[in-house]
Simulated scan of single mutants.
Amino acid sequence: MRRTAMALTALSLALGTGIATAPGAVAATPCPTGAVCIREFGGDILSKNIFYSYGAHNLDNVTGYHILVNSQTGRAGFQFCRGYDGTDCSITYRDTGPYPAIDFTPINSLLLVP
């Protein structure tokens, strides 16, 4: 009983001081349903980095680490491509949701596939 009271006291102190929460954390901008998006580390998605249509999408000035979010439906996928116009591409990724941050510096286009 005493341990439970001490744990609850410690938890309430932590919550009261903001230790257990992330003050100032920014909520990530959601990627629209049916799209593939490149998210900045601050959580924003620039309008130029939202892709809806199948086919190749050349990237403009996207370098460094970013998070890709697949919000396509119907098991549609995407590929990372080193070349422009969807050439020299990776395997097809079909899982939805955010992917771990990757270095986009060598990536010049994305290829969206059904």
Rank of each mutant, 00 (worst) to 15 (best):
T9E: 12
S12Y: 09
S12K: 13
L13F: 12
A14Q: 12
T17W: 08
T17V: 13
I19M: 13
T21P: 07
T21Q: 14
A22S: 14
G24A: 07
G24S: 08
A25S: 10
A27L: 10
T29I: 10
P30A: 13
C31S: 03
C31E: 00
C31N: 06
P32M: 10
P32V: 10
P32K: 12
G34P: 01
A35N: 12
V36S: 01
C37G: 01
I38D: 01
F41T: 11
G43F: 05
G43W: 00
D44F: 08
I45W: 01
L46M: 08
S47A: 14
K48F: 07
K48A: 13
N49Q: 14
I50M: 09
Y52W: 15
S53M: 12
S53K: 15
S53I: 09
Y54K: 10
Y54G: 11
A56P: 00
H57E: 07
H57S: 07
H57W: 05
H57T: 04
N58G: 09
N58F: 08
L59G: 00
L59W: 03
D60P: 08
V62M: 10
T63Y: 08
T63W: 08
Y65G: 11
H66V: 07
I67G: 02
I67W: 02
L68W: 01
L68N: 00
L68R: 00
V69E: 01
N70G: 05
S71H: 08
S71I: 09
S71A: 15
S71V: 06
Q72G: 06
Q72L: 13
T73H: 04
T73G: 06
T73P: 00
G74I: 07
G74D: 14
G74M: 12
G74Y: 13
G74Q: 15
R75G: 11
A76P: 04
A76E: 02
G77F: 02
F78D: 01
Q79T: 03
Q79N: 06
C81T: 00
R82P: 04
G86N: 04
T87F: 06
T87Y: 02
T87A: 11
T87M: 04
D88P: 03
D88F: 06
Y93R: 05
D95F: 09
D95L: 12
D95E: 12
T96Q: 05
G97K: 02
Y99C: 04
Y99W: 03
P100T: 08
A101Q: 14
I102H: 05
D103G: 09
F104Y: 13
I107V: 14
I107T: 10
N108P: 13
L110G: 01
